[in-house]
Design a protein around this nucleic acid. Structure first.
Lengths: 151, 151
DNA sequence: CAAACAATAGTCAAAGATGGTCAGAGAGGT
DNA sequence: ACCTCTCTGACCATCTTTGACTATTGTTTG
């Protein structure tokens, strides 16, 4: 990681870690890192793409800028809240499995992650009366749903 | 062991003995051992294969690199059984976290997986009396340890 | 207000910096 | 001699850096 691109990428992402949106002046950044201005375009085109979850806007001319924002995928968030509502405080093993498959399909979980979670939600892992088991399973699933949002 | 291949292999493995992952510059290593760059590829292709338990990544261009990691294979079951024995049927939140970090370091879990599991083992997720909580946490951890074996 | 000028950012192709491949030469052992 | 493992170098692929030229927007001037 000694190439300028990675250094600038890290610098910008570090700021984006705190601020959820940054606005830079191409020339300023180029000067700060002692590189040509178009280097900044390269960094943005290769490291802050839409596929990587970033939205970039810019303006030329006096008072120009480049603005970078991390995209918040509302759909996923909504889906998680929706599932959370459906789950409530009662969840059967089968329903849990169905939700996990849905989360894999939505690419919010990997297959491995889902397997791990499922193993913890199966009845063998919840040594208690049936009703308590379902309440407990629902509670754990709620935790999972909230945790996914922060991953 | 007088041929360059073996010497370079030994050099890299000696570093891998301490660091669990190394990142080299092909050209640098070639210069250090006074051989052509492609010699390094030969060493990697014959001594650091996936069958021998190594995972290699690389990048070309400016700031390029070759990264070598030792991956865990069979021995992992022993570690899992060992942790299982340590856990027994009582586990505090802190101890759980420590074990998860260990599992991450041993590359048996990803960071995301560990975060998901940890969220399920924290006290907020286990609404019950403290003693029951610790017993329950231990029980869930045992499930995780067994599940990892078949991931 | 239109034209010129200033201040920015964008594009793109060439040069630079690495690593990868592969076929053939070289070396060591049986 | 023959076979296998090593070593080498020419050529290839990919990523980064640079700079000349272009496009857009804001500001000043006639």
């Amino acid at each position: 990681m000694q190439n300028i691109t990675d250094i600038i990428e890290a610098y910008l992402k570090q700021i984006l870690h705190d601020e959820k949106k940054i606005e830079i002046k191409r020339q300023e950044i180029a000067e700060r890192f002692d590189c040509v201005p178009s280097q900044i375009n390269y960094v943005i085109n290769t490291r802050f793409t839409i596929e990587k979850g970033y939205f970039v806007e810019s303006k030329r001319g006096g008072g120009g800028y480049i603005r970078i924002q991390k995209i918040v995928i509302l759909d996923s968030h909504d889906l998680l809240d929706e599932i959370s509502r459906w789950v409530g405080n009662d969840l059967t093993e089968q329903a849990a499995e169905d939700y996990l498959v849905r989360l894999i399909n939505e690419q919010l979980l990997t297959r491995r992650e889902a397997i791990l979670i499922q193993s913890l939600l199966q009845k063998e892992s919840l040594p208690m009366a049936l009703e308590d088991q379902r309440r407990m399973r629902a509670h754990l699933m709620q935790t999972v749903l909230q945790t996914i949002k922060r991953l």
